[in-house]
Simulated scan of single mutants.
Amino acid sequence: MGSYDKAFIVGYVCRLCSEQKKKVIHLYSNKAQSLKLLEKIELLPIKVEKFDNLPKTICENCIERLEIQYSLIQKIQKSNLIQRSHRIYHSNGRCPIECPLHGINDSSWSVQSDSSVS
């Protein structure tokens, strides 16, 4: 009989962190589809293909991190659209009511001229 100190617990390898975990979600399962995991993974600098010979599972820790990153990217994209819209509305230097940032008095939005920079 073997000893327990040399026993190896079989689990699944996470595609993102390469750690072996007992609790994972398969990337092509209904649960993964409902969480839009493949869509979120597309934002990473890796390529996941259904028939490659790499792991097709993702651990809970990586799912949490992926969700945080995805939320940040969505916020950045939304902010970028708002800022671009803001610029379009200011052809005359005023902030019209149609502007998405109308009424926000934040000094970080204003552009300083060369004469005011010391």
Rank of each mutant, 00 (worst) to 15 (best):
M1R: 06
G2V: 15
G2N: 12
G2Q: 05
G2C: 13
S3K: 11
D5V: 12
D5S: 07
K6N: 09
A7E: 12
A7S: 10
A7H: 03
F8I: 14
F8N: 08
F8T: 07
I9M: 02
I9L: 05
I9C: 07
I9W: 01
V10R: 03
G11T: 05
Y12W: 07
C14V: 00
C14R: 00
C17M: 04
K21A: 04
K22Q: 15
K23D: 03
K23Q: 09
K23I: 08
V24M: 08
H26Y: 14
H26L: 06
Y28H: 00
Y28M: 00
S29R: 12
N30M: 04
N30Y: 13
K31D: 12
K31P: 06
Q33S: 12
K36I: 01
K36D: 06
L37W: 06
I41F: 05
I41C: 01
I41E: 00
L43W: 01
L43T: 09
L43H: 13
L44Y: 07
L44T: 09
P45L: 04
P45N: 11
P45E: 04
I46G: 01
K47G: 01
E49H: 08
E49M: 13
K50V: 02
K50N: 03
F51L: 11
D52F: 09
D52W: 02
N53M: 14
L54Q: 01
L54H: 06
P55I: 05
P55T: 09
K56M: 01
T57Q: 09
C59G: 04
E60L: 14
N61H: 00
E64P: 01
R65D: 02
R65G: 12
E67V: 11
I68D: 15
I68M: 14
Q69E: 15
Q69G: 14
I73Y: 13
Q74I: 11
K75A: 14
K75M: 12
Q77F: 06
K78V: 12
N80W: 09
R84V: 11
S85A: 12
S85W: 13
H86T: 03
H86N: 10
I88L: 07
H90T: 05
H90F: 07
G93R: 00
G93M: 07
R94K: 14
I97K: 14
I97V: 10
C99L: 04
H102D: 05
H102Q: 09
G103H: 02
G103I: 09
I104H: 05
I104A: 03
I104N: 08
I104P: 04
I104C: 03
N105G: 12
N105M: 08
S107E: 15
S108L: 10
W109V: 04
W109C: 11
W109T: 10
S110T: 15
S110R: 14
V111E: 15
V111A: 10
Q112V: 14
Q112G: 12
S113W: 02
D114S: 12
S115C: 08
S116R: 11
S118D: 13
